[in-house]
Simulated scan of single mutants.
Amino acid sequence: MANVRSPLLYFFLAAPVCYLMAFIGFPIVYNVVMSFQEVNLGNIVDFLRPFVGLDNYRTVIADPSFQRVFINSLLFVVVNVVAQVSIGLAVAIFFSQRFPGAHYLRGLLLASWMLPALVVGALWKWLFATEYGVVNHVLSTMGFIGSPIHWLSDPSVALTSVTIANIWFGMPFSMILIAAALTSVQHEHYEAATLDGAGAFARFRYITLPAIMPALLAVACLVTIYTMRAFDLIFAMTQGGPLDASNVLPLLSYQFSFQQFQFGIGSAIGSFSFVIVFAVALLYVRTLKKEAIG
């Protein structure tokens, strides 16, 4: 019986491997190869192109715009990870309580995450509009501001604007994963702690948090990966402007490749993003292994 199933087993294993190699592995390798070549509109269709070694990487690192965008990306990722995991944890704990309509409200919240990123970007661009935006209208009505804030055209607040929008967009994903982890916590532990006189904060600190810590780390890794890939939402809101104030690495790679037609430099920037995402992905896999063993 084992001999009959072996060829079928290899077939089902070969199918996803071939898919990954064709649609994920090849683009990654092709991008890395391009980062070591001089690629422009004149030779992009050629099989052999001039080899420039690490020149593209040196050009990228020396470029002031890359340095600013790299810092923007780090800030964007760190704030998103902290906010999405923290808010997602708070919302997951809230919806873990039993009250009428909890499941429907949680599903409604998750529906916002299912929207296309371009749609979400267009929505928040309208909300943050200077003259007719809802955010400025609400803040002005409540007396917090005396004049409209230029959320998307002021370099000092543009990154904050796209960060707020991305947190709103990604938080439901963190919430649903953390909510699933909360279901694994034994209620008997809470009951015993309550009988011993432990308050809500003590139960959270000594029971809930240790139990779901591996899940929180895994969620943080996933949020980091997804945030490093952020493109559509920022492109719809600010296109990285003004003056690269809200620009991030994926968008900068696009700009060099498809606006300035410096495909080698764009590929080098993409390689920086890939290295960061790959390192976080390895951490995520290691976290899952530890969680499975534990």
Rank of each mutant, 00 (worst) to 15 (best):
N3M: 07
L9W: 10
A14G: 04
A14E: 04
Y19G: 08
A22R: 15
F23Y: 14
P27S: 11
M34G: 00
N40A: 05
N40P: 02
G42F: 09
N43T: 02
I44Y: 09
F47A: 14
F47G: 15
R49G: 13
V52W: 04
Y57V: 01
D63W: 07
P64L: 14
S65G: 08
F66G: 07
Q67W: 12
I71G: 12
N72G: 06
S73A: 09
V78Y: 01
V79N: 06
G88K: 01
G88Y: 02
L89I: 08
A90S: 08
A90Q: 04
V91R: 00
Q97G: 08
F99T: 05
F99M: 03
H103Y: 06
R106V: 00
G107V: 00
G107I: 00
L109M: 09
L109T: 02
L110F: 15
A111T: 12
S112Y: 00
W113M: 07
M114E: 04
M114D: 07
P116H: 03
V119A: 12
V120R: 02
A122G: 04
L123M: 15
Y132T: 14
Y132S: 14
F144W: 15
S147A: 12
H150T: 11
H150E: 15
L159S: 02
S161L: 05
T163F: 05
I164R: 05
P172D: 01
T183Q: 13
T183P: 04
V185Y: 12
Q186S: 15
H189P: 07
E191N: 06
A193G: 13
T194P: 00
G197D: 08
A200Q: 10
R203K: 13
Y206W: 14
L209G: 09
A211P: 01
P214Q: 03
L216V: 05
V219A: 02
A220M: 11
C221G: 01
C221H: 10
V223H: 02
T224D: 05
I225Y: 05
I225H: 04
M228H: 11
D232P: 11
L233V: 11
L233G: 10
L233C: 10
Q239H: 13
P242W: 03
P242K: 07
L243Y: 07
D244T: 12
A245W: 09
V248Q: 01
Y254G: 00
F256Q: 15
S257T: 09
Q260I: 05
F261T: 02
F261M: 09
S267E: 07
S267Q: 06
I269E: 04
G270A: 07
F272Y: 12
I276D: 11
I276Q: 04
A279I: 14
A281Y: 13
Y284M: 12
V285F: 08
I293S: 13
